[in-house]
Nucleic acid binder design. Structure first.
Lengths: 211, 211
DNA sequence: TTTCTTCTAAGGGTATTCCCTGATTTATTT
DNA sequence: AAATAAATCAGGGAATACCCTTAGAAGAAA
């Protein structure tokens, strides 16, 4: 039985790479390649793939929302998330939302095919490196390095104020709260970002585009 | 005349994608594909490509440093940086360091070939979207205004140490100077950069690429 | 309803930064 | 040789940041 495959990725090179990997392989057929979410949503009901390889860093929508929509339309579809990063928290969220596999983009042909067969059999496919990370995470919990920490609304306001080179006193006047409260927020931000001091806060905030 | 091409990218799929794009094209030959910086440095003198397509987000070294090393070994080599992001400041830095082109990974076959021919003719290749961004940046004056303040060698060392979230005490131990000297340097840095405190130092240092 | 999160605030410290001043030595430039 | 810039060090004090802990109130979520 032939497996029908569709691919959604805004990187032309990745798209081509996967197609190249899969041509010349019996029982596999690429029935569609899409560059964004909209295109995918429109075309997928026509191409009717068994498996969708889905880049989760699309320009127009995030991977989770798109997965939900697609599975709403086609409950039989198996979705394998494609990404550059080993972001555990994101993996978990994706899996919760019905995604069937999670592949790094440095995957080779054999593993790619294995992944597709695994999800088609109804199982979940995770790469070893990701499995290990999930295991390590449950035992020790420090390895949170990857994506945006979610600061609260207030913390974000304090963060911005810190980045404006304001002192605690000045921030408290700006936000109409006690200086002690500002300090509490600053401490919580440091802890969330893993910074040692305000310098670290700013460095990390700029790095992760929190400003 | 045949163009010899090498590719360095830690994403297997991208690697395959580019190879797929370039096979079946006359006058082009892929003479090597590498997954990291070390492999590239070791093999490039044997494969002797005319053009290297280089992913700048490698795991083991940053793109700028690798480019420098490669061009030191092979001054005739043309390097085209590959990336996911339209990061203008980074483009500029890469170009300053001798890189000949900057390609987004969603580039198609035609543009890829055009890019290689452009750099081989001795010119710089930039994609339109990046060109536009650079133009918009120079006409608008929001960022990058003002020249780089020239910090002294020592001040720069202190700046780097500050950015590592070290305290005055720790910096003094690292540089084998008195804490008071460190403070003097920090004050001078603040004054030169126009910062109100260490947070400002880091913000401006990142903005002006002083790190 | 209960639990969780967020925002708020404070006590009571210690550590560090910030700011001013003034000064010596060593290179580099003129 | 003389002026200039860079790097070094320091005293002293005010301001600020950092740290740990505790805790009430409001709102959202389970």
């Amino acid at each position: 039985m032939e497996i029908k495959i569709a691919i959604t990725d805004d990187h032309q090179m990745v798209l081509q790479g996967i197609v190249a990997m899969l041509t010349d392989t019996p029982d596999l057929k690429v029935v569609g390649t899409y560059k964004n979410a909209q295109e995918t949503l429109e075309a997928i009901e026509i191409s009717k793939p068994d498996v969708l390889l889905l880049d989760i860093n699309l320009p127009d929508i995030n991977g989770i929302d798109l997965s939900k929509k697609l599975l709403g339309k086609m409950p039989e579809l198996k979705i394998i998330a494609l990404t550059n990063f080993e972001d555990i928290s994101f993996v978990k969220r994706m899996l919760k939302n019905g995604v069937h596999g999670y592949l790094l983009k440095n995957t080779d042909k054999l593993e790619l095919i294995k992944a597709m067969k695994t999800v088609l059999s109804g199982e979940i496919f995770l790469q070893k490196s990701i499995q290990n990370k999930i295991i390590n995470q449950t035992s020790g919990k420090t390895s949170d390095n990857g994506l945006k920490p979610n600061l609260t609304r207030r913390e974000h306001e304090v963060l911005v104020a810190i980045s404006e080179e304001l002192t605690t006193q000045e921030i408290s006047e700006k936000l109409f709260i006690s200086p002690k409260t500002v300090e509490t927020h600053r401490m919580n931000i440091m802890s969330k970002l893993g910074a040692k001091n305000s310098v670290g806060i700013i460095k990390i905030a700029i790095e992760k585009e929190l400003l």
